[in-house]
Amino acid sequence: MPSNTAPRAVAVLLSALALSACSAQPSHAFARATTPSPTPSSAIPTVSPSPTAKPKPKSLAWYVAQVPTFPPAPVPVPVQVASSGPATVWSHVPTDQKVAFITIDDGALARPADVPEFIRQAHIPVTMFLNSPAATEYTDYFTRIEATGAVVGNHTIDHPELRGRSYDYQRREICGSADKLQQLFGKRPALFRPPFGEYDHTTAQAARDCGATVMVNWTETVNEGYVRYQTPEKVVKPGDVLLMHFRPALMDDLLGALKAIHKSGLTPALLADYVPGLTDPPTAEGDLPPRR
């Protein structure tokens, strides 16, 4: 009788091979991780660098950005003036140095809010010729400008035309304003500008008696950003004095003056640096000559 051992052995062997084959397949729990295919570059959102924002036109930043780059100002060489007698009169500073001077008058009509900061950021050397009532009412505003290095000059109390008036009248207008400006800013003005640029010998003498060394008029005027020349050559010359006022368009006037000075190959400078002795002006009415 044939033995059934061989068939059973074959069956066992086949069963073992089947189990071995199954155990060689990876289980679902440990299936090989697949590497995700790269995302197409077209599908990746790109962030473009934002361009530098341009200042809003007529903003403070816009005005500052418009200021030309000037060469360094030369070391100032003061111009000698008489130490006695009537005040010296300048409409043009007698210097060959490549500088021009920015002056601002009055103070009562308008005081644009950004002007002090514009002067500070743009490093504009300015001289203010103030009427004393405006200086009294808006002292904080003008003090902010003075803090930039600006100099306060005298422009009378009531802004009258002085030419032809008596010495007493002129002295009252000039000395009265000088007294108040000294009280407000701590220094007696050594620069004086006659209203409307009108003066006579009496004006010059009263100005000196009230502490002013120099009476300053002007060579060019600036209004609403436009420079108006008083000579046929449309150019700012060394030593020229530019006049503007505390008006609504003062920011444009300052910028217009700076561009005209730059176009002429000059650098703005501080007027007081060209007048000797301004660091030690008379300190009080009592230091002045007696009233005549």
Rank of each mutant, 00 (worst) to 15 (best):
P238T: 04
E224G: 01
L13G: 15
R228M: 04
T35H: 06
T5A: 15
T88K: 02
A61M: 07
L109C: 03
F101C: 03
A178V: 08
A212N: 02
V67M: 10
G176T: 11
A100Y: 04
G197K: 00
E146T: 02
Y169N: 09
Q170V: 05
L109S: 14
P55T: 04
P116S: 06
D273F: 13
K54E: 07
P78N: 01
V67D: 01
V236R: 03
R32V: 10
H92F: 05
H159L: 06
K180P: 02
R291Q: 10
V99M: 08
P289Q: 09
V151R: 13
A87P: 03
P71T: 02
S3E: 11
P282M: 12
F185N: 03
Q182H: 15
E161P: 00
M215A: 14
N217L: 09
Q121K: 11
D105P: 13
V241T: 13
A113I: 05
K56D: 12
H92C: 10
V12S: 12
F30L: 08
Y167H: 00
A11D: 13
H201C: 06
L162E: 08
Q97S: 07
C22D: 10
A87M: 08
T35G: 01
P116V: 13
I124T: 08
F246W: 14
P125F: 08
T52M: 14
L255Y: 09
R291V: 08
A61P: 01
P232M: 01
S264Q: 00
P248K: 12
T148D: 11
V93Q: 02
F70E: 05
V241A: 09
L181E: 11
Q230P: 13
R144I: 12
G286A: 15
P248W: 12
A207H: 03
S59D: 06
S20E: 03
F142N: 05
M128L: 14
V67W: 06
H92K: 12
Y229L: 01
T127D: 10
T127V: 14
D140S: 11
T95L: 11
I104W: 01
S48A: 14
V222I: 05
M215G: 11
E285Q: 10
V241N: 02
F30K: 13
L13A: 15
Y63G: 01
K54D: 07
Y138P: 08
V216E: 05
G286M: 11
L288W: 06
T127M: 03
D280H: 15
F101G: 05
L254Y: 06
P36I: 12
S42W: 06
A147Q: 15
L181P: 08
G176K: 07
D240I: 04
